[in-house]
Design a protein around this nucleic acid. Structure first.
Length: 405
RNA sequence: GGGCAGGUGGCAGAGCGGUCAAUUGCAUCAGACUGUAAAUCUGACGCCCAAGCGGCUACGGGGGUUCGAAUCCCUCCCUGCCCA
């Protein structure tokens, strides 16, 4: 009896954390809380638009939420938006999205399941492709569906509004996206839909459309958006993304390059470190008791071990310290074989793709960024002779390459 | 269909006949510093070479005017706004 009390208390705490940690919006909060506490398994929908093949830490935030629901005994219903991806989600872009071909979607999808399985238990999840039903809708049904929203309502959506006011184009096609996503909720009979905060409009549309089809509206939960390493929106085109498939060393380094003021947010959204401990970090960072560098090293360890295991995380940290703290050589250096025995330095950098052009190579050398066997080079016309043992080229702080014959 | 405003380097955005390979900001890269691939500061940031007050290619495409065009003209394509 006592243990039952204790475990139900744990469940209630877990629910509290589920509904608060990294959460921006819950509708309908009281309802969702009630049904969660009741414990009846719910169908939790998460739509993923497979426009890109890699899952990054920002995407992972909400996938981890799905995992939390799953741990409480609810059904994860994964919607792969193979159909919607062909239309393009307007949520996160201020520009028109290109239409993806079916072929591209298929290619993007290939590694998706593997990546997801790093976070959630796919054997207990439903995994459905929305082309199954969306491709069958008739024009008439689409027209009826379109009746559930007015142009004004669509334009109320922030990124449409911005574009509208700015005078950049908005395609009618983009208005269709929330309708389709909402229709997905009808098809899978979602009790809850979760998504990033940028999905608020889309998941809300699910409520409207479910009611249109006589279903109870799903509850919705949106998660905080995670900024990229430089503090801007995490985006592939910004190059500030940490992918969950990144190699341990790379992942560790990228986390170390996260801006200091994002440390706490990263702990909260991307790790399983307890909220109590995070609170202590926050306090100690503020008071100066905890060095941000050390906090970040811990953060990096947590994240790397989440996706690659503890051993890899420890190794990555040791490697990072070796290369960047003590300015040593990395333990693994890529090697490349060339056939020509003598190169001008600039040519060598181009041949090894350490520089894009000879002009760039000359610049790098002029700025003191190139070392051969540890010795800084100053003349880009210096003749470099290759041998079987090879020479070690270093460009900048973190590009190492051994070149031999 | 008509009128108007635009299309410039990865992006934003100046320039509006020569001194423009093109101001500036962001991004990027290198260096210094450090607490790290953080922050800050400094510098670089089309390509080629025999490296120079050097050559070549670039300001939506094509054609023209001019000694000379990102800048003027014609034409085509594209985008936005307004009117129908």
């Amino acid at each position: 009896m006592a243990s039952l009390m204790k475990s139900s208390k744990r469940v209630s705490e877990a629910i509290d954390e589920l509904l608060s940690r990294g959460v921006t919006e819950i509708i309908d909060r009281t309802h969702l809380r009630k049904v969660l506490l009741a414990g009846k398994p719910l169908r939790i929908k998460l739509g993923i638009d497979p426009t890109g093949p890699r899952i990054h830490l920002g995407n992972a935030v909400i996938i981890r939420k799905l995992r939390d629901f799953q741990r409480l005994g609810h059904k994860a219903v994964f919607i792969v938006g193979d159909f919607t991806a062909q239309i393009g989600d307007p949520s996160d872009k201020l520009a028109k999205r290109p239409m993806l071909t079916a072929l591209e979607v298929k290619a993007n999808l290939k590694s998706y399941r593997d990546q997801l399985s790093k976070i959630i238990d796919l054997s207990r999840a439903e995994f459905v492709f929305n082309s199954r039903w969306l491709s069958k809708l008739t024009f008439k049904e689409v027209a009826l569906l379109a009746e559930t929203f007015t142009v004004q309502q669509m334009l109320a959506r922030r990124n449409f509004k911005e574009r509208y006011e700015k005078g950049t184009e908005i395609s009618i096609r983009e208005f269709l996206y929330p309708l389709m996503q909402g229709y997905d909720s009808v098809e899978v009979k979602a009790d809850v839909e979760i998504g990033g905060f940028d999905q608020l409009f889309n998941v809300m549309a699910g409520r409207t459309i479910q009611q249109f089809y006589g279903q109870k509206p799903q509850d919705i939960l949106t998660g905080e958006m995670l900024e990229g390493t430089d503090g801007r929106k995490m985006s592939k085109s910004w190059g500030n993304v940490i992918n969950i498939t990144d190699e341990p060393n790379d992942m560790f380094g990228k986390v170390m390059s996260v801006r200091d003021d994002l440390i706490i947010k990263y702990f909260t959204l991307t790790t399983d470190v307890s909220l109590e401990e995070i609170k202590i970090f926050e306090k100690d960072l503020k008071s100066g008791k905890l060095n941000p560098r050390d906090a970040k090293a811990r953060l990096a360890r947590e994240i790397v071990s989440l996706y690659h295991g503890d051993a890899a995380a420890k190794k990555a940290e040791a490697e990072f310290d070796k290369v960047f703290r003590t300015k040593g050589l990395p333990s693994e250096i890529k090697t490349k074989k060339l056939t020509k025995p003598v190169f001008e330095l600039a040519e060598l950098l181009v041949a090894t793709r350490l520089a894009k052009s000879k002009s760039e190579a000359a610049r790098l050398i002029g700025q003191g960024g190139v070392k051969i066997d540890g010795i800084e080079q100053s003349d880009f016309r210096e003749k470099i002779s290759l041998s079987k043992e090879g020479v070690l080229i270093q460009v900048g702080k973190r590009n190492f390459l051994r070149v031999s014959l």
